[in-house]
């Protein structure tokens, strides 16, 4: 029982670590994007200021489902983050860092947010949710096929074990190198997951007034910001553990994490935005073909670099 409580406390610690890490890195990235656009950029802790400001404001609510959905969203995401290993040996619940838990438990949070947004009664929110779900349908399948290849090759779906397996073979055993086509697909899918341009269709401030977020202000929006930061933490960490050889220690984790997130942000800042059906068509064309090809040659022909 005490063990369990300690593990849960450790899990909360992981979630908090993820929040602090991602929020700081997001602030730094805002500065980097600012520099790309020849601006000075905000303070590195600007994201914290934004979130705490939102929490301090007095917001409006559209009924109990509006609030309940936000609680479910943040709760689901915190729950998911609690399972995330930070390094390949440091995690709250050793042995239960199953890949599918992340993919499906994260969906509870998404569902909560979607529910709350639709519960606000604003049609723009429903349109935003529709776009978010459609984008999800697009990027998830190629990504899952690549992960299928990895799980089939290694025989484990535990993130930490996958990390250790990659480390055992030296730095060039990382799956982003060992499965090059799969690595490309994973990067593209990760951009979709994080909602980076060109796949940012659901947050469209000028078109549908920021989509699902349209009715939120104050603490609900603040909680959704926290949720967003932890979601990004989960998704980028998944990439680090699955494709970049996990992390031997916490410093490597932070370096890899920062590198991935910054690279995606820099790539994203030079793209325009696709339409929603273009996103679906895109993902079901090249990334899916690449992913299936990669899976086929890796599983049936055994060609792994």
């Amino acid at each position: 029982m005490v063990d369990m409580l300690l593990m849960i406390l450790a899990g909360v610690g992981v979630a908090l670590f993820g929040f602090v890490l991602q929020t700081s890195i997001a602030g730094v990235n805002r500065k980097i994007v600012g520099r790309i656009q020849k601006r000075y950029g905000p303070k590195w802790y600007q994201e914290f200021l934004d979130i705490f400001k939102l929490l301090s404001k007095r917001s409006v609510t559209h009924g109990w489902i509006f609030d309940f959905g936000v609680i479910m969203a943040l709760g689901g995401i915190i729950g998911t983050a609690m399972f995330m290993p930070i390094t390949s040996s440091l995690m709250a619940f050793p042995g239960y860092d199953n890949f599918f838990i992340f993919v499906y438990l994260i969906a509870v949070g998404m569902l909560g947010m979607a529910m709350s947004a639709s519960g606000s009664g604003n049609p723009l929110a429903s349109i935003g949710v529709m776009r978010a779900l459609t984008t999800m349908l697009a990027y998830e399948v190629p990504f899952m096929i690549v992960v299928l290849t990895i799980i089939k090759l290694t025989g484990t779906s535990s993130l930490s074990e996958l990390g250790i397996l990659q480390q055992a073979g030296g730095d060039f055993n990382w799956f982003v190198i060992a499965l090059p086509l799969g690595g490309i697909v994973a990067v593209i899918s990760l951009m979709g997951m994080l909602g980076k341009k060109p796949f940012v269709t659901y947050i469209a401030p000028a078109e549908i007034a920021s989509g699902p977020m349209v009715e939120y202000g104050g603490k609900q929006l603040g909680m959704l910001f926290i949720m967003h930061e932890i979601t990004v933490f989960i998704e980028v960490s998944l990439f680090v553990h699955l494709f970049l050889g996990g992390a031997e220690n916490i410093l490597f984790f932070i370096i890899k994490y920062f590198a991935v997130y910054t690279a995606l942000n820099i790539m994203s800042s030079v793209y325009g935005r696709l339409k929603i059906d273009q996103v679906v068509l895109f993902f079901y064309k090249w990334p899916l073909i690449l992913a299936v090809t990669q899976a086929f040659i890796a599983i049936y022909l055994g060609w792994v670099i």
Binding site: G11, A15, G75, G218, K219, G222
Partner: peptide, 21 residues
């Protein structure tokens, strides 16, 4: 763990200023 997450979110929600309906 999901329950714990929801509990944390609920605590965050409840200690903050009450919303206007």
């Amino acid at each position: 763990v999901f329950g714990v997450g929801v509990l944390i979110a609920f605590i965050i929600f409840i200690v903050l200023k009450k919303s206007r309906k």
